[in-house]
Design a protein around this nucleic acid. Sequence first.
DNA 1: CATCAGGGCCCTG
DNA 2: CAGGGCCCTGAT
Length: 324
Amino acid sequence: MPVALELRNKTTTELEPVPPYNFDANLHKPSHFPSSGDIWEKGMYWMTMVWNGQELGLRFENIGTIYKPRVRINVYSPDKLSKEFIDNLIPEIRWRFNFELDISEFCDKFKSDKVLGPLIEKWEGMKPIAASSLYESLVIYIVLQNATVKRTVQMMENLYGNFGKKVKFDEKVLSSFWPPSQIAESTEQTLRDLKLGYRAKYILRISEQFSKGEIDEFALRQKGRDEIKKEMLKLYGIGPASVEYLLFEDFYFCGSIEKIPPWERKIMSRLLFNTELVPSEKIVKFFRKNYAGWEKLSFHYIWEDIFWKRKYEHIEWLENEIRL
DNA sequence: CATCAGGGCCCTG
DNA sequence: CAGGGCCCTGAT
């Protein structure tokens, strides 16, 4: 493992997300698998980012409240960054951490709801957060496929170790992503040796497409849900389950649920119906009936809440559903 | 020891 | 449109 790249230069800025914005519930998603690419503590968040081919370290500090949100952001880099670079970076950060989306209507509408009310009380201002580039998200969804958490983590860390870099900033050493070309110039066998299995082909092809500039993430952000869905399904290795994640977590569409993965189905059956396993349609209908227009975001509140609980207390039945 | 499912997707018939 | 095959790993 090579020594970490030192990011000695620091640029600081302060930004104001659209309220309500819940710093901790947005910068940390306890349901996600652990990664060496970021660290969360209450009120503070560190992560790596590659922007215009430049490795960066980001540190977010909460200096506001839910209703008057304000975030201090340190951008760490090997050398001093130009004003142009920073001016370019800021809107991207605003997008990736979903500073712009206004969910006040959702919070107001359901704050007295029997199920959502108490959760909005706790997590008001929680939204979907991409944090990653589209390319990086696609890689993540591919290593999630047909794998347990442990295996996903293994694949992800193998990729970081082989193609990514370690960067050091603010006393933290974190893994940073690689540019798509890095994998595009690699081989399927190299990826298979990293234990990616049949996913090797998917990641290779998608890396090639991104490296050739065939996918314009910024243009996609301007398009509607159905068009994005159609475009993403064209990608080799991206099917309905991955698209379901993409539409919500990366493009921030908070409505309609179309597909529920098996483990989410089990956990939701338990939470909503106190039954071992109900049909997916029943869960979909529940959300459509009660939270039309906000189905996915509602799901998200229920989902992350149980994983927040899991951080601090042992939940026997849940442990049995999460295969490590 | 063998078998199998797991936070899917592709390909074939 | 259903179903087999695919990588790897740990559980049985």
